[in-house]
Structure formats: structure tokens, C-alpha cells
Simulated scan of single mutants.
Amino acid sequence: VYDAGLFEYAAFTFGMNWGVFSPGSCAFLEANGIPSEPWNLNYPSIGVSELAGTQTVIRTVTSVASGKETFKAKVVAPPGYDVTVTPNSITLNPGDSATFEVTITNDGSGPVDEWRFGSLTWKASKYAVYSPIAVKGALFSAPAEIFGSGETGSASFDVQFGYTGSYTAGAHGLIPATITTATVVQDPDQEFDPDDGFSNAHTFNLSGVAFFRLAIPPEATEPDADLDVYVFDPNGDLVASSTAGGTEEVVDISLPADGTWTVYVHGWQTIGPDSTYDMYTWAVPLATGGNLVIDSAPTSATIGSVETITVSWTGATAGQWHLGAVSHTGDSGLMGLTLVNVDNR
């Protein structure tokens, strides 16, 4: 069997960025060796939704057999992928556990944005433990965000490619946060309604923006206050929200449509009749240029290869929180962004 309890599922929600648990809780789980990567949830099925090149998945299996058994791995690889299991043979007494790795590699024919399926079966004399494998190829894999500090600094990260062709890394920003200070009143019924007067509306006119972020960190309001955030697009549709317990709100919008966006800060639980807060916002431009520069990056992509990108910045003002991005552009156009978060507060 594959055991997964409360801690494992809590770490999974952290890896999915669902905002269910606080960063402190997530740090506790990581410190105790519980993986937060979604693909490493100790579940019988194995799924990788964005595979660019190679991905290794970790599982721990526990024997419920009545006696000592030796299990051998039998793999049916998804079409377009190679799958190796390490170790490929495990011997367990009743109640014993063993950890193994499953490495999935695009052999060059795994299609982008299409699922392919296979399986792993651990076979013993009287038992067979079956795990389905599902893989979807991706053009590239890179961190969603990297972090730094200092008025001048640099950082590096790796990018893995799931295609062969052209590649360009572009630098956007850095830009300092715009800070909006306001006071929101307590909502008696704690139900968000943009028209009931218990939420503050903030509007943002966005044009040519690659990435829009807003944040109300815990230190930006009173301790124990619980403020929530709701974001409406230029059409008036609710497209994002942040309603985590306490006040640790972050909403990210990639490639927002041009127009007027409305952000509501809701007084779900204020301290006394109202609470004052600071809301940080960034609109990282779609155009390249600024004080973030690409020092080194690949100029082409080869499927399965891993390359390093190095960026640096100057003039990131002390006492301010800055955000920028590295864009990843290939044959098909913009593939994604890696945010560069420089917090000099």
C-alpha cells in the first residue's frame, strides 16, 4: 500500500499553491522531510502534468503481505517516454516499507500538451501492486519565481526544454511596489458582496502588462485580522480571489487583458470595527528593459537539455519591494514567465 496521511496531503496543497495552510506550516512540513511537490504525493497513481525532458517521482510502498516477499518492477512506458525504476527489485517483510524512484524521460517523440499513459506493476509470487502512469509533455520547465535581495545582486536558475528550436530569454522590470493604504470595516455577516459597503474597491488601469500581482502580507495589517481579496477583470467577471485564513493574501494574474481591473478588499474579520492595511501591487511590463538584465542564457533549445540562466539587477531601492520577470520565448511565442522577487524592505 501507499500510505499518505494529513501531513502528506497538507504538503500537497502547499505545492499546489492553494493557500490552505500558512507558510509557517509548510516550512514545518518541509523541515520534517515531507515533500510538497505535487507529483511526489505518496499516492498509487503517478502523474506528471508538465514534463519537459526528464522528471523523477518518489514513492514509498509498505508491504501488507503475510510473509517476506520480493517484488520486481514491470513497466509499460507511456508512448514517447522511457521509464526507469530504481531500485527495480525490493524485498519486504510484513509491515516493512521501501522508497523507490521512477524516472520518466521524453525520448524525443512525446507530444506537447497531450496525455500519454502507461503503468508500473510490482510483482511478487502471490501479489501484484499496480500503479497507472500519466504524462503530459511541456515545452519547457523553469521555476515560477526566484528570490533575491540587495540594491545590486544576481541570481541563477535552470530551465529544461521539451522541444528543439529557437529560444530567447527576456528581462522585464524590476519595478517597485505601489503601496495603497486604506481602512476596511467589519462585515457583520462575513459574506462577500461587492455592493454591501463592507469591502473597499481599488481600480487599476492595466495596459501592456506581462504580470500583475497584489499582496497583503501579514505585517501589512493588524495581528489576527483576516482580510480577503477578490479580483474582477475589465468585463466585471470574478477571476481570482485570496481567502486564506488570517491575512496573507496574494493574487497573481499572468498576461492580464488591457482595461480597468477592480480589486475588492473584504473585511471578513477586522480588529474592532475596522482594520487598516497596506496593499502592495506590481504591474510588470510586457516590454523588455529596465534594471533587470540577462547576463547569460541559452539561445536555442534542445529537447531534454538543462541550461542555466543568470540575471542581475542594479538600482533596486533599499526599503522597497521589487518585482520583475524573465520571459521564455520559443518557436511558438511566449511560453511562460519566471518572476524575480527582490525584497529590500
Rank of each mutant, 00 (worst) to 15 (best):
residue 19 G to V: 07
residue 58 I to C: 00
residue 92 L to S: 02
residue 126 K to E: 14
residue 145 E to C: 12
residue 29 L to V: 05
residue 105 T to V: 14
residue 307 E to V: 04
residue 36 S to R: 13
residue 327 S to W: 03
residue 81 Y to N: 04
residue 26 C to F: 01
residue 300 S to W: 03
residue 313 W to N: 08
residue 223 P to W: 10
residue 1 V to E: 12
residue 159 V to S: 02
residue 60 T to S: 10
residue 66 S to W: 11
residue 93 N to R: 13
residue 166 S to A: 15
residue 89 S to W: 01
residue 161 F to V: 02
residue 229 V to W: 02
residue 48 V to A: 06
residue 113 D to W: 04
residue 51 L to W: 02
residue 6 L to P: 00
residue 157 F to R: 04
residue 43 Y to S: 12
residue 280 Y to F: 15
residue 287 A to V: 09
residue 62 T to K: 12
residue 281 T to V: 00
residue 112 V to T: 13
residue 299 T to S: 15
residue 102 V to D: 02
residue 171 A to L: 06
residue 236 G to I: 09
residue 158 D to E: 15
residue 24 G to N: 13
residue 319 G to K: 05
residue 338 T to I: 05
residue 99 T to R: 12
residue 51 L to G: 03
residue 184 V to Y: 04
residue 81 Y to M: 08
residue 148 G to Q: 10
residue 297 A to Q: 06
residue 49 S to I: 00
residue 259 G to E: 02
residue 257 A to M: 08
residue 239 V to S: 05
residue 34 I to M: 08
residue 113 D to M: 06
residue 295 D to I: 04
residue 317 T to W: 01
residue 24 G to M: 01
residue 21 F to C: 00
residue 149 S to N: 12
residue 66 S to P: 03
residue 114 E to P: 01
residue 187 D to L: 07
residue 32 N to S: 08
residue 126 K to A: 13
residue 283 A to L: 04
residue 197 G to N: 09
residue 330 G to L: 02
residue 331 D to A: 10
residue 147 F to Q: 14
residue 123 K to R: 13
residue 59 R to P: 05
residue 201 A to D: 11
residue 120 L to E: 01
residue 305 S to P: 06
residue 190 Q to L: 09
residue 79 P to T: 12
residue 216 I to A: 03
residue 324 G to L: 05
residue 342 V to L: 04
residue 197 G to C: 09
residue 73 A to V: 07
residue 155 A to C: 00
residue 340 V to A: 05
residue 256 P to W: 04
residue 271 I to S: 03
residue 193 D to A: 12
residue 340 V to P: 02
residue 167 Y to G: 01
residue 167 Y to V: 06
residue 301 A to Y: 07
residue 126 K to R: 14
residue 307 E to R: 08
residue 333 G to Q: 10
residue 288 T to V: 09
residue 336 G to V: 07
residue 132 P to G: 08
residue 141 S to P: 00
residue 126 K to I: 08
residue 154 S to E: 14
residue 55 Q to R: 14
residue 126 K to C: 00
residue 53 G to A: 06
residue 321 W to G: 00
residue 325 A to S: 10
residue 39 W to T: 07
residue 89 S to K: 13
residue 2 Y to A: 04
residue 345 R to Q: 15
residue 1 V to G: 11
residue 6 L to N: 13
residue 168 T to M: 09
residue 240 A to D: 12
residue 235 N to W: 04
residue 167 Y to M: 08
residue 278 D to A: 14
residue 300 S to L: 03
residue 152 T to I: 11
residue 143 P to W: 10
residue 78 P to N: 11
residue 305 S to L: 10
residue 128 A to S: 15
residue 214 L to S: 13
residue 55 Q to P: 00
residue 291 N to Y: 06
residue 182 A to G: 08
residue 240 A to G: 07
residue 282 W to V: 06
residue 188 P to G: 07
residue 226 D to K: 01
residue 66 S to V: 11
residue 148 G to N: 09
residue 216 I to Q: 02
